[in-house]
Design a protein around this nucleic acid. Structure first.
Length: 434
RNA sequence: UCCGGGCUGGGGUAAUGGUAUCCUUUGGGCCUGUGGCGCCCAAGACGCGGGUUCGAUUCCCGCGCCCGGACCCA
């Protein structure tokens, strides 16, 4: 017996069925918006991540040298890969480029609730539009995916913030301020004591008075955002506030404004984001960590050597999404589903096979005996795979030209002429032959 | 990397310094026709390594994996 590698998981059939259903829902929503599936490699040059995020990032990656001496890394995220793909075919691709991809990613991290070393995400990105409508469409596809999973407006919220509002406000204060440190402090605001929070901001270069003022500004409600503009008095903040409002307006038109709340203290991972950023949270707070996030990153493509190309995206991860769905009671049942089991008694394989083939032709999941089992053992097995209907094909009935349908939930049975089965019925059940 | 809690057949458990309980499960049989129930037979565990001991599943150490948290979260 071998243990699996820490942070890597096996998904057995019942659990995988629920995951598949969830992934299918998210992907079909993305398809409905015209996002196209792309396929991407599991390995990239390690240097690509070092260039984008700094050499330290390599500590958190699975990095190794391949037999050709290339320094490679298992992909920890999709964004650099799709950025590389956009740059490579920039002239050939019609804008906007709308791509999605569901895949595993790997990070050498500490395992905890909702976090593993191998994890699955669906990345959804738009390249080539700087319009607020594009930001809003990303919010909309995410919201539709969640409601498509059965989540209600009361189950989740998108906390929407804006990179440039935070940066612009900090820039408007007098003094030498470490913006990165200040933003990191903001990100911790909900998690730590007020005093430690103030200390962090002070360390970042704000005076005690500025700390209070800054914090007041961060909690400005959505209908008074113009106060931020008048405080800063800069074009940068004016533009950022205008952009955020435009995105929220567009979200309203797309029917997803109700899922969005303004939250300037949401500041996670701002380093490559340039505009609107958002994170999805469990509205009840039972799932304590962020479910997933997204935002606008207009500088990345140019940073990868391409033409300046605006971009915005979101990446739902299935570890945390499962936690949210389970909390809300909408996680799909982790069980096998079988439409028909065709039970054979005696030498009836030919007829049983014909019936099974006809039912499969109608798109059903159909199993039949492949183990030479007894009647009782076959019925037991049919029960174990949650067969809805058992078609008993036995020599004795067949001599009378009949088969027996058995509905497993009720135990009801019905004799049916073999040549009439499945007949014209799409999904024949006991009731169809009363 | 750090902190806390765990690890007994496939799953859930019991007891224990002298090799392990019960339920469930799995395979087979009664059983080619009402049988998904029942009965019978069988299979299957102390995470790994080391130490202490006459003897370790039990006590000690290290490691692995799991659960939760800190840090981090591109």
């Amino acid at each position: 017996m071998y243990d699996h590698v820490k942070g890597f998981r096996d998904f057995y059939a019942p659990e995988m069925a629920a995951r598949r259903e969830t992934i299918d829902t998210v992907e079909s929503v993305a398809r409905g918006y015209g996002f196209r599936e792309v396929g991407t490699p599991a390995l990239e040059s390690a240097q690509m991540y070092a260039d984008k995020s700094g050499e330290e990032i390599l500590e958190e990656l699975y990095v190794f040298e391949d037999k050709g001496g290339r320094k490679v890394a298992l992909t920890p995220e999709l964004t650099p890969t799709v950025a590389r793909m956009v740059v490579a075919k920039q002239q050939a691709l019609a804008k906007p480029i709308k791509w999605f991809s569901t895949r595993p990613f790997w990070r050498y991290e500490q395992v905890q609730q909702g976090r593993f070393r191998e994890f699955y995400q669906t990345n959804i990105d738009i390249f080539g539009s700087s319009e607020p409508t594009a930001d809003a469409e990303v919010l909309a596809v995410a919201a539709d995916a969640l409601t498509g999973l059965g989540l209600e407006p009361t189950d989740f919220e998108f906390r929407v913030s804006h990179r440039d509002i935070l940066g612009g406000l900090l820039a408007a204060f007098d003094g030498e301020i470490d913006q990165q440190a200040a933003i990191r402090a903001v990100d911790k605001r909900e998690k730590i004591e007020r005093d430690s929070y103030a200390d962090l901001l002070t360390t970042a270069g704000l005076s005690p008075a500025q700390v209070d003022r800054f914090d007041d500004l961060l909690t400005t409600p959505a209908d008074r955002l113009t106060e931020l503009v008048s405080f800063a008095g800069t074009d940068r903040v004016a533009a950022a506030v205008g952009n955020l409002q435009a995105v929220l307006d567009a979200a309203a038109d797309l029917g997803v404004r109700e899922y969005c709340s303004l939250s300037l203290t949401t500041a996670r991972g701002l380093d490559y984001y340039t505009g609107v950023v958002f994170e999805c949270f469990d509205a009840t707070g039972d799932v304590s960590r962020s479910v997933f996030g997204g935002g606008r990153y207009d500088d990345l493509i140019e940073g990868f050597g391409g033409q300046p190309t605006p971009a915005v995206g979101v990446a739902p991860g299935y570890a945390t999404l499962a936690l949210l769905c389970q909390r809300a009671g909408v996680w799909p049942a982790e069980e096998l589903a079988t439409d028909y089991y065709v039970l054979q008694v005696g030498e009836t394989r030919e007829t049983a096979a014909r019936i099974a083939r006809d039912l499969r032709g109608r798109g059903h999941v159909v199993e039949s005996d492949v183990s030479g089992r007894s009647f009782g053992a076959q019925l037991d097995y049919a029960d174990s795979i949650n067969a809805e209907t058992v078609v008993i094909v036995g020599e004795r009935d067949l001599a009378d030209g009949e088969v027996t349908l058995k509905q497993m939930s009720s135990g009801d049975q019905q004799q049916v002429p073999v040549e009439a089965f499945p007949g014209d019925h799409d999904r024949p059940t006991v009731d169809d032959f009363d």
